[in-house]
Design a protein around this nucleic acid. Structure first.
Lengths: 230, 230
DNA sequence: CGTCTTAGTTGCGCCTCCACAACGACACGG
DNA sequence: CCGTGTCGTTGTGGAGGCGCAACTAAGACG
């Protein structure tokens, strides 16, 4: 079965920590692999949620749209991360849209199936709780950040978060390996494309970053960290 | 045992939904009741987390302090709500301080005890997951709010959230029954005491609210809702 | 290789909101 | 009743950042 090829990989995911190989095998077999091509969606905001996913390839961008039609990027997720959980395990509808950035593959479990699995494997339930707890903490921190910090520091924080989450060490710095427009950065940090552009230009002049069309290379992460932490 | 008096009450909490009376009794017996007086703290930001609580009396205010010493109110919780979970089940330290607003009582379980209980009662684990999922959604929404909305709308949203969570229906409107200073509102909505004061004054002139020292009475919730939703 | 499209830059005016300061209102305690 | 402390209000100035517009740069495509 195709799913099984991902087992060695999934073993490292927080979600399956501490589970025996036989249990993990059973869980993986109960899931269904879904592929979503670049730019297409796993689900849209407001869709009824039926499936919990664990990403195994690619990256997913989660967005919300405001009443005025403004888009906000709530989060980006990389391989090994669970998503759709908030909706599939909680209420009913997805609180955000999930768009594939690059071709993606994810294992999915229907919500009734996952409920059964969680009852059967309490260890997995605890892992899910851990995962969500971490997510709550992350949002709390970002909330505080948005409430108190100026744009420049928020952008610095945003870039740092991205470079940790999905950055690639290359010679000369950390490359954020993902089509990342000014627009995206603005939507992640709660500002406008213009302000982002000005900020990045300034940093580029200072040699902190190097930026081109839809890409950012962080040359001096510590300088960025200094800006973020004031 | 003192704990047991809260059982009828706890049965209605999301956390214990769908559990049998005997199981609930066992869980409640495993917990320890803790009382915290007005203005004192359940825990402080950065403390190692050992206990998960369910509030049975009073209200708790969760705050974070920024590097510059500014305080931010992350959330307010009322009876029946779980707290401390993010830390006790997840990593290690509390992401925020928990201050009693009014005299409080809460049932607490040590983190090793709660882990055992969750393994023993999978239903409870699922309830915790549901709870956390809801919390993540709430923070996502508030994050988007802060990222895109102007102060006036954020304050409107904040007051509405409070009036739903802890408001009391009285003649003439919904009273937010909690010593709630301008400072508090500012810290909840990411603005300053001055801007809050101006905003509330305007609304008072329009007859939407009635406000005095450390209290707010919402006279026309629908007018407030209209402002919040533009 | 020229054209079209999309992303990014930068100047400028304006508006929200912050910051500070001075003052008024109310509660508390003797 | 008066002093003292805390909370709230309001005026004024200024800055940060938004919004628009005009321009440049870089791919994409035939």
């Amino acid at each position: 079965m195709e799913n099984e090829q991902y087992i060695p990989y999934l073993k490292q995911s927080i979600l399956f920590q501490g589970m025996s190989d036989t249990n993990l095998l059973e869980v993986v077999r109960a899931g269904r692999l879904r592929r979503v091509r670049d730019g297409e969606y796993f689900f849209h905001e407001g869709d009824p949620a039926r499936i919990l996913y664990v990403l195994v390839e690619g990256r997913v961008k989660f967005t919300q749209v405001t009443a005025e039609g403004e888009q906000v990027i709530v989060r980006m997720s990389g391989p090994g991360e669970m998503f759709g959980a908030v909706a599939a395990l909680g209420d009913a509808v997805h609180p955000a849209s999930g768009e594939a950035t690059g071709d993606c593959a994810a294992l999915g479990w229907r919500s009734d199936v996952i409920s059964g699995l969680l009852e059967q494997f309490p260890r997995m339930a605890i892992n899910v709780v851990r995962f969500l707890a971490g997510r709550v903490k992350e949002f709390q921190d970002r909330y505080r950040e948005l409430a108190t910090e100026r744009v420049e520091r928020r952008v610095a924080h945003g870039l740092l978060r991205l470079s940790v989450q999905i950055g690639k060490q290359v010679e000369g710095g950390i490359l954020i390996d993902l089509t990342l427009s000014r627009q995206d950065i603005a939507e992640m940090t709660g500002t406008t494309i213009f302000t982002v552009s000005r900020t990045l230009s300034k940093w580029e002049a200072q040699g902190i970053i190097e930026s081109g069309r839809e890409r950012v290379l962080v040359r001096k992460p510590d300088a960025l960290r200094a800006i973020a932490d004031e």
